[in-house]
Structures are given as structure tokens and as C-alpha cells.
Nucleic acid binder design. Structure first.
Length: 351
DNA sequence: ATCCGTATCT
DNA sequence: TAGATACGGA
């Protein structure tokens, strides 16, 4: 994250004019404006991955001061929060920082202030990687140091490819930094994958395309593994086709903003689904398939109730003329599914 | 020797 | 959970 460009900022303010102004200032960002605290929270809960930073006013009509910040911290939403307010009292600023905000800006915001925002994303990412590393070394404090050396007699600590390094003392264990895949890095990752012919989308090639200084093939491989897992899960969950453009669930969340509450969606979807489940073509399919699809359906309802909209984004459209069971058979039959799975996963990216 | 995919670890 | 690491095998 070297500049403002590509930064995903959620701006929350109950003043529409303010939002507009800030939005203009943020024009080189992928920013989302938001007037309502609860809506902001829902966005964060469902699409945390889509944001790098939250910029919010302290006071919102009908809300307690700092309410959004409090909620974000309470729910462990791992994003840097920058507060803003017309209030320029030093106590208010201190209170913000003490509560856990990363910075405090007094309104009206100036462009140069906006231009500093990217730094807080870096700070957050740095903290994340440090935090993780600390946990690890804490857990493996004294005893496991011995454990590790006697662990398997194989490679003790192979150093990774590059890294010229001076090698002052041999005992100095080289600890590789944790890479945090923020939306910027993930964006480059996606971009790379899409620019490569699917069957060549392997760690080495992706790494090369990304061209990020310090990033290793192992980093990419690890992320790729998680990403494929994510795609697979989503494919199973979707089970219906999404009509909108494929955004991998990571890009601009505006196209996901719910038009209906989850319960409304369920009410809308459920009758259609029930109808499908009882339709003659459905009955013709063997019981095993029918049963599997029924359990999926139950699961879907459950998720819709419990996970807010995360399992059924509003842009997923159920085509009423489309036989639901038929669509599912492809990925429900485990028997013939185990062929070139990674290939087909990648393929879905280009849909 | 390189590197991919999967499993496992933290 | 996310990212790192281990390792078998192509």
C-alpha cells in the first residue's frame, strides 16, 4: 500500500454533505460512503475483506458518541479506525486514541490529511504480523525450542530462496515476516491470476506476475491454497448461479449491499425453493440426490437466518425456470468430482 | 534440482 | 482464521 490509490475506505457520517466532500477527496480510493452506523456494521461484518480502513465521525444522530468505534473494537473487527469531528478539544482527541482509534482528524478535513490515511493501514498490517509472530514465539517458548531441534532430524531451518543476508551469527534464526494479504495485495493476486491462462496459474507464475518485492513463492502458494478453498466453499454454498459479475467476494461491496433483510429474503426464496423441491422433475431423481439437495436447502435457510446476508447476497438470483436439483448434481456427486478440481476452480474465476 | 499440491502446524 | 511450514511426489 504505497499510496491512497486502491485503498478501500468505509466512510461513516450522518452528514450527507460531509460524505460527499470526503468522497470527492477520496476519489482515487475505492471508498464506500455510509450514513447509518448499523448499516456500516453490517457491511463490516459481512464484507470485512473488502475494507482497509474505517473513517467515521464521532457523533451520529441517535447514537452514543464513539458507538461505531466501540462496536468495531468489541466485535474484534480488525481494521484501523480513524475518527473525525468538528470537536477540536484535546480531551476528545485523547479519548479517541485511548479508546483505540488510530488517528483523529478535525473537520473540515483537508486533502493532505486524507492523503495520510494509507499509513494507518500499514500500521495495522504491521501490528497484525507482529502480533501473530509474538503469539507463536510465546507458545513455543522454552520447551519447544528443544522439541524443534529434535523434531524430525530433517531440515532444521532452510532459508528461503533469496535474501542475501549477512549471516552474522549462525544461531540467529531467520524469522520470515508474516505477509498480510490486504485488499491491495489480494487485488494484485487476483489480477495476476486473471492475466494468466488458467492451467498456468501456479504459485511461481503468479508471484512473477505480481512482482511484489519481498513476497515469496511460499507466500503465494499458501494464499493460493486458501483462495482455492474459498472458491470451492463458495461454489458449494452458492449452488445457484450468481448473475452479477464475478467479484470473488472480495471486491467492491456496493454491488452486495442488501436490498432486503435476510428474513425478507428467506421469505421470498423459501416458497420458490419448496415449490422446486416438490416439482415432478425433482421426484424423478433418485432419493440420495434429492435428500442431499434437501439438506443443502435447510442449510441455506439456516445460514440466511444466522449469518445475516453473508450466505445469500442479494445479487444471487434464483431463476424460477431452472431446475434446482439438476444444477446441484454436478457438485453433489462426490464420486465423479475428483478430477482436476483446481483447474475448474480457477476456471470459475473467468466466468 | 525445482516446484506444485496437500496436510499440518501455530 | 490466516498464513507458515513440512513433505511427498511430479
Amino acid at each position: 500500500m504505497k499510496s491512497l490509490e486502491g485503498l478501500n475506505v468505509l466512510v461513516v457520517d450522518d452528514d450527507a454533505t460531509c460524505l460527499k466532500i470526503i468522497g470527492k477527496m477520496l476519489r482515487s480510493c475505492k471508498y464506500i460512503e455510509c450514513i447509518d452506523v448499523n448499516e456500516a456494521l453490517n457491511l463490516l461484518r459481512s464484507y470485512l475483506k473488502c475494507f482497509d480502513l474505517v473513517l467515521t465521525d464521532i457523533t451520529m444522530t441517535g447514537m452514543k458518541d464513539f458507538q461505531l468505534l466501540d462496536c468495531i473494537l468489541q466485535e474484534n473487527i480488525d481494521l484501523p479506525v480513524v475518527m473525525m469531528s468538528v470537536d477540536d478539544k484535546i480531551e476528545t482527541m485523547i479519548k479517541s486514541i485511548q479508546k483505540g482509534a488510530y488517528f483523529y482528524l478535525t473537520k473540515p478535513l483537508k486533502m493532505e490529511q486524507i492523503m495520510t490515511l494509507w499509513q494507518f493501514v500499514m500500521v495495522k498490517n504491521y501490528e497484525k504480523s507482529i502480533g501473530k509472530r509474538d503469539n507463536i514465539s510465546q507458545n513455543s517458548m522454552t520447551p519447544s525450542l528443544i522439541d524443534q531441534s529434535s523434531r524430525k532430524g530433517k531440515h532444521i531451518m532452510k532459508t528461503h530462496g533469496k535474501q542475501p543476508m549477512k549471516e552474522n551469527k549462525k544461531v540467529l534464526k531467520e524469522i520470515n515476516p508474516i505477509v498480510v494479504w490486504d485488499s491491495y495485495l489480494h487485488g494484485k493476486f487476483i489480477e495476476a491470476i486473471q492475466s494468466i491462462v488458467p492451467h498456468r496459474a501456479v504459485p511461481k507464475n503468479i508471484l512473477e506476475k505480481m512482482n511484489v518485492p519481498g513476497l515469496t513463492r511460499e507466500n503465494v502458494a499458501s494464499h493460493l491454497q486458501k483462495f482455492r478453498l474459498y472458491i470451492k466453499k463458495r461454489k458449494e454454498k452458492d449452488f445457484y448461479r450468481t448473475l452479477g459479475g464475478d467479484n470473488h467476494g472480495f471486491s467492491n461491496p456496493t454491488q452486495f449491499v442488501p436490498l432486503k433483510t435476510p428474513s425478507q429474503m428467506v421469505q421470498q426464496i423459501a416458497p420458490k425453493m419448496q415449490q422446486k423441491m416438490l416439482t415432478p422433475t425433482t421426484k424423478a431423481i433418485n432419493f440420495k440426490t434429492y435428500y442431499k439437495s434437501w439438506t443443502k436447502y435447510q442449510l441455506m435457510l439456516f445460514n440466511a437466518h444466522n449469518n445475516s446476508l453473508s450466505s445469500i447476497p442479494s445479487n444471487i438470483h434464483i431463476e424460477s425456470s431452472q431446475p434446482v436439483i439438476l444444477m446441484n448434481r454436478n457438485h453433489m456427486n462426490d464420486e465423479n468430482a475428483s478430477e482436476g478440481s483446481n483447474q475448474s476452480d480457477i476456471d470459475t474465476l473467468n466466468d
